[in-house]
Write a protein that binds this DNA or RNA. Sequence first.
DNA 1: GGTAGACCTGGACGC
DNA 2: GCGTCCAGGTCTACC
Length: 291
Amino acid sequence: MEIFLDARPPFSLTAVICSHGWVQLAPFETDENHSTIETVLELGSGRVVELLIWERAEGVGIFSELPLTNADQAEVEQKVTWMLDLEQDFSTFYALAANEPKLAQAANHARGRILRCPTLFEDILKTITTTNTTWGGTKRMVRALVETYGAALPSDLSRRAFPTPQRLAAADAEALRRECKLGYRAPYVLELAQSVAAGDLDVEALKSKDLPTTELRKRLLAIKGVGDYAAANLLVILGRYDYIPVDSWALKMVSNEFYHGEAIGRKEVEAIFQPWGVWQGLAFWLWDWSD
DNA sequence: GGTAGACCTGGACGC
DNA sequence: GCGTCCAGGTCTACC
């Protein structure tokens, strides 16, 4: 069956797909032109479905081989709308960016939307697996989590959804360390999964626009394994751009672009983008570093 | 508030 | 093939 969703213009699915490396992490898949997203999703009903998302006039189409109940369809619509940030309005940022040559193409290419996972739980876990490792390591860890603990697609048992908190909560730290090569992150992942599964921590509530960014950051930092970089990365994913995710790559890029390659720290990065105010994280994210 | 050391893995390198 | 070194953020203890 097919579902159609509208997006606030300008919109480009390819721009969302290429917004960062998330599409390379299981269970996301894309085609060689980065024009579609395939993913496997475990729904609240317990059904596991495969979704194919493509761009169409004014929005996206979603294809599911399995027919969906009304409740399943509503959940798919809500999750895809969130994942692709279909309702976001970037007109204020585009007006500011038009005066900056390194950002002037943002509006023309409909850049700004950052690909999200269906749940913030998944985004947090994936962000933790990006810390203190290489991108190759991140991809291995996430693939192993999906293959070991994700629910299988009935029509193709080799394809799995990202594990729910409940599934991960039933694991033990040693197994996560051994099977998924999470290393010292294993107890952090387990603690988060168990807190969410037990209902002690409602991470999905952090998607709320009512929470001030400083409070939201405080709550993210309270999660074991989430430090300054991870919190800023998650804030950008959540559509809050007041902080810059400063990692070693950021230091290198900003140093080369603004400080003649000198050794710099987080404060120097923040000083460059501070004039962008509530948009500084997005200005940093979309900056054209190609020179 | 700032700093040092430990955490863990994989890749690069030298032997 | 083996051992060593290093890169990558966060946590904890300490000053």
